[in-house]
């Protein structure tokens, strides 16, 4: 399992009601169900991924995150997860607010654009391509890159309280200079 997903799974309380936004093939939801008896729903737009979810017997809802979370009532989930999807969202602030509306707690992971390798490639005049940013600039689904510092700024502006942070590189936690040495960041947040 992807390192950020393993971290996320640890943060989900047993039996929590989970909403996984951009859930891919549903493997996180499946793990959460089997290991933590946490029932959940995934949201996914991609046809092939939706099919994999159905094959994996995961509840999946094929709707576009950009149009918000109108399918879900206020505070209907214990935990709303957005893993490696934040950077693909156009209306980032709007979605963050929507997540905090439907969930008691929000877990967000994203590739850290502040990692030294990305900085170096930009300094050398190139858009970065790496393990965590695997796309060429002309084919990337990513539209909003950020660093850990940028994300924390946004949280402050939205009045979001960061409860836990885990920065990773190659699956290992990074505590020293995380915005420079970490390639993936995972946050657990609540409203206020």
């Amino acid at each position: 399992m992807r390192a950020d997903l393993a971290a996320i799974a640890q943060w989900v309380a047993p039996q929590a009601r989970v909403l996984d936004l951009g859930c891919g093939d549903g493997s996180l939801l499946r793990t959460l169900w089997h290991e933590r008896q946490a029932p959940g729903y995934g949201v996914e737009i991609n046809d092939a991924a939706v099919l994999e979810c159905v094959e994996n017997d995961v509840n999946v809802l094929q709707v576009d995150l950009e149009s918000g979370l109108s399918l879900f009532g206020d505070r209907t989930f214990d935990c709303v997860i957005l893993s490696e999807t934040l950077q693909t969202i156009h209306r980032t602030e709007f979605l963050m607010r929507e997540m905090l509306r439907v969930g008691r707690e929000v877990i967000v992971s994203f590739p850290n654009f502040g990692h030294w390798n990305a900085r170096l490639q930009v300094a050398l005049g190139r858009m970065p391509v790496s393990e965590t940013l695997p796309y060429e600039w002309y084919e990337t689904p990513n539209v909003h890159h950020c660093t850990t510092v940028d994300f924390e700024d946004l949280c402050r502006r939205l009045g979001v309280r960061i409860r836990e942070r885990l920065v990773l590189h190659k699956g290992k936690p990074v505590t020293w200079l995380p915005n420079l040495l970490g390639s993936v960041a995972v946050y657990r947040c609540t409203a206020g």
């Binding site: 009601r17 729903y41 046809d47 939706v50 979810c53 159905v54 995961v58 509840n59 999946v60 809802l61 094929q62 709707v63 109108s70 399918l71 879900f72 009532g73 209907t76």
Partner: peptide, 21 residues
Amino acid sequence: SREIVRALLDNRRIVSYLELD
């Protein structure tokens, strides 16, 4: 169809929803 899905989610029913192109 989303109206139906929303009502089922409000009741915490098991539901999957496909929006086919």
